[in-house]
Simulated assay, not measured.
Amino acid sequence: MALESGRRFIAHFDLDSFFVSVERLKDPSLIGKPVIVGGLSDRGVVAACSYETRRFGVQSAMPMKTALRLCPSARVIKGDYASYTHYSRLVTEVIGEKAPVMEKASIDEFYIDLTGMDRFFGCSQYVSELKQKIVRETGLPISYALASNKLISKVATNEVKPNGQTEVPFSQERSFLAPLLIEKLPGVGQKTAATLRAMGADTIGSLSKIPLTTLQARFGKGGIELARKANGIDDSPVTAYSERKSISKEDTFPQDTADGAFLLETLVRLTESVAFQLRRHKKLTGCVAIKLRYSNFSTVSHQAMIEYTSSDDLLLSTAKGLFAKLYDKRQAVRLLGVRLSHLIEGNQQIGLFTDTTENIRLYQALDHIRQRFGTDAVFRATGHTLNSDGKKNEE
């Protein structure tokens, strides 16, 4: 059929309970049983949970002690983020080979823009066959929805998980959303939902009937976005995934230096800075690179693929390992840089498999200080022996 004016075809693919699904690939005896992935101690945090545990009220980011109280029979498994990264990249390759435009929204979510393909190949058939290919080549269950925009496709995917597929016909966006609870809208958390219910909106349909002026008066600019979402309006594009996107920072020293301790301290400071930027933009990185420029202006660099993370500890460990391999102690250095690439969307995931809730709150508190007072407001002691000229303090 001919492409209708302004009509788009956007598919959203979401791997079902991704971490748990990978663990079940590794150990099939876990299939059908309640499974929690996260820290092994009762002071740890739930990184992911199977649908069998969700029926008991278990949720991601919940303290492990609470989760086990809700579902005592759950099998707790320490997370293996290296495996999750491997399978995420495998799915990315499968989709990337077939999709005209793919956005990797997170470690387990993908958007595909098929606009225009309906002229030559049925979009419904295309996404159905792509799902089968993903399952066949990776062994992972995945759900998808096809709709006219990213908002509708994401909400629809969530409605058919696990292992489901659906299509929301063009012009049916509002009727699809109308009966759903307001929490089903992306970005509507508990606080916003409570406020909307106090205003008489329990469902997305009832939210769509609230006058725009009323929503603006209560939520400011956010009220406009709520109104658009409630009416199924979303013009955001599918942004093509590129491994070249990066966050970087480098220092050119006032004087060339061969001081290894000074260089290591600079490395720590730079790494913590880019890691903070990573978390501030709610992203994870899958690749760390180090760059050195020597006094003769020769430049060398080295990179390493890592499991997706935003953790200072893992990034620092990788950066130090790269530096140790790259640094030639016989030459003076004039520039040192750190770059994080292969970026994907991802909320704070520091230590979900090993840290306690207290440690995670500490990281978040440090980031809050940096957000308010600047990147250099707080950092590790190993990065705190430099003066304002980039030279070592002698105190």
Rank of each mutant, 00 (worst) to 15 (best):
S17H: 10
A74S: 14
R54Q: 15
A105F: 08
A67Y: 00
T85F: 07
S21G: 05
T53N: 04
G38K: 07
G39A: 04
I77L: 15
K26W: 02
R54V: 11
S21L: 03
G96N: 00
P72F: 04
S29N: 10
R24D: 01
I36T: 08
S21I: 03
D42F: 03
G38N: 10
V46R: 06
S106H: 11
V101P: 00
V94G: 00
C71I: 03
A74F: 01
A48D: 07
E93L: 05
C49R: 02
P28M: 01
Y51S: 12
V58I: 09
I95G: 08
E52R: 14
M102V: 13
D108Y: 09
K33V: 05
S21P: 09
F19P: 02
M102H: 01
T92Q: 04
Y84Q: 11
R24T: 03
A82K: 14
R24N: 07
E109Y: 10
C71P: 06
K98W: 07
C71M: 06
V22F: 06
F56A: 15
L40K: 15
A11R: 11
H12A: 05
A47L: 10
G32Q: 13
A74C: 07
V94F: 01
K104V: 14
R89F: 04
V37A: 02
E23G: 04
V37L: 04
V101W: 01
G96P: 09
Y84F: 13
R55Y: 00
S17K: 02
R54M: 11
P63L: 07
D108K: 03
E23A: 12
S21R: 12
R8D: 12
P72Y: 05
G32S: 04
A105V: 12
K104M: 15
V101F: 00
R89I: 04
K33L: 13
G96C: 13
T66G: 00
S50G: 06
A82Q: 14
E23V: 09
G96D: 03
A105R: 11
